[in-house]
Amino acid sequence: MHSVLQRANFIFAYTLSVLAVLTFCCFISTVFLNYTTDVDVKTVKVYVKNVPDYSASRERNDLGYLSFDLRTDLTHLFNWNVKQLFLYLTAEYSTQSNALNQVVLWDKIILRKENAVLDFKNINTKYYFWDDGNGLRNNKNITLTLSWNIIPNAGLLPNVFGTGSHSFKFPAEYTTARM
């Protein structure tokens, strides 16, 4: 009654429908989990220099140097639907020219089989802390926050902020020593 092509099409469509329902069940089983955790981040050394930015213009801009300590346990974030975590440390501050500045200073990818207990001491930033002017010197309210994206097998890609942040200030004078 039905040809072989029609039967193969039915089996293929049915298989895709079953896989779509199973993928949705995988997604719904982990979407309501709480992915926040406590993060302890502290700055160790903080310097600011006024140097020329040759990449954009010849103007002198502020360049911040800092090293930090980071401690957190992310093992409970991993379940069967989590492939990896993408961690990133951001600095948020305000200047006279911009109400909100956000700079990514450090990042790390943690795979499922890696150790997710982080205990870093005196680690340097991975990326430059440039300001598009002179807003870092004597800035008293810079906040470091650790955030992460959860890369799932199926479902949404949540952006989660860690509980706990660290505020610090840059010195009032520029540093002239080489770093």
Rank of each mutant, 00 (worst) to 15 (best):
T143V: 15
S67D: 07
L5S: 15
D73G: 06
W106K: 03
D40L: 14
N124C: 10
G162Q: 04
V44T: 12
Y88L: 11
C25L: 14
I11C: 13
K83G: 02
M1P: 14
L100A: 05
K45V: 10
I150V: 14
S29N: 11
I151E: 09
T125F: 09
A91Y: 07
G164K: 07
A56G: 01
H166W: 09
K108V: 02
T43K: 04
V46C: 05
N50Q: 13
T143R: 12
F78N: 05
N79F: 11
S97I: 09
N153C: 13
V103K: 11
Q96L: 10
R178S: 12
Y174Q: 06
F12Q: 15
D107I: 01
A116D: 00
S57Q: 02
Y88K: 04
C25D: 04
D119H: 14
A154I: 05
P152Q: 10
L105N: 02
H2D: 12
L87N: 05
K140H: 12
K49T: 08
K140P: 03
V18F: 00
V31A: 13
A13I: 09
N149C: 01
F12A: 15
L118P: 01
M1D: 09
T175G: 06
T30N: 12
H2C: 13
R7I: 15
F161Q: 14
V104F: 03
L66M: 10
I150S: 04
V48K: 03
N124F: 08
Q6Y: 06
A172R: 09
T125A: 10
S57M: 00
L105F: 07
V160A: 08
I123V: 15
T23R: 08
S55I: 04
V48R: 04
T143F: 05
V160L: 08
H2M: 12
D40E: 14
L144F: 05
Y88P: 00
R112N: 13
L63Y: 03
E114G: 11
W106G: 02
L105A: 00
L70N: 07
T95H: 04
V46K: 02
K49N: 06
K169E: 14
F120Y: 15
T90Y: 01
Y128C: 00
V48M: 03
S3R: 11
K108N: 07
L118T: 01
L74H: 06
L156H: 06
D62R: 02
L118I: 12
N134L: 14
V4E: 15
I123Q: 15
Y14S: 15
S94T: 08
T15C: 11
D107S: 13
I109Q: 03
V117L: 04
Y93W: 05
H166G: 06
R7V: 15
S97T: 11
L89Y: 08
D69M: 04
T43W: 07
Y14R: 14
P171G: 06
S97Y: 12
L85S: 02
L156G: 00
Y128K: 01
Q102F: 00
L87Q: 03
C26L: 13
N98T: 08
K45T: 13
G64Q: 05
D73A: 08
N115Q: 02
M179S: 09
L136W: 09
F78P: 00
W80L: 10
L89V: 02
A116G: 02
V31E: 14
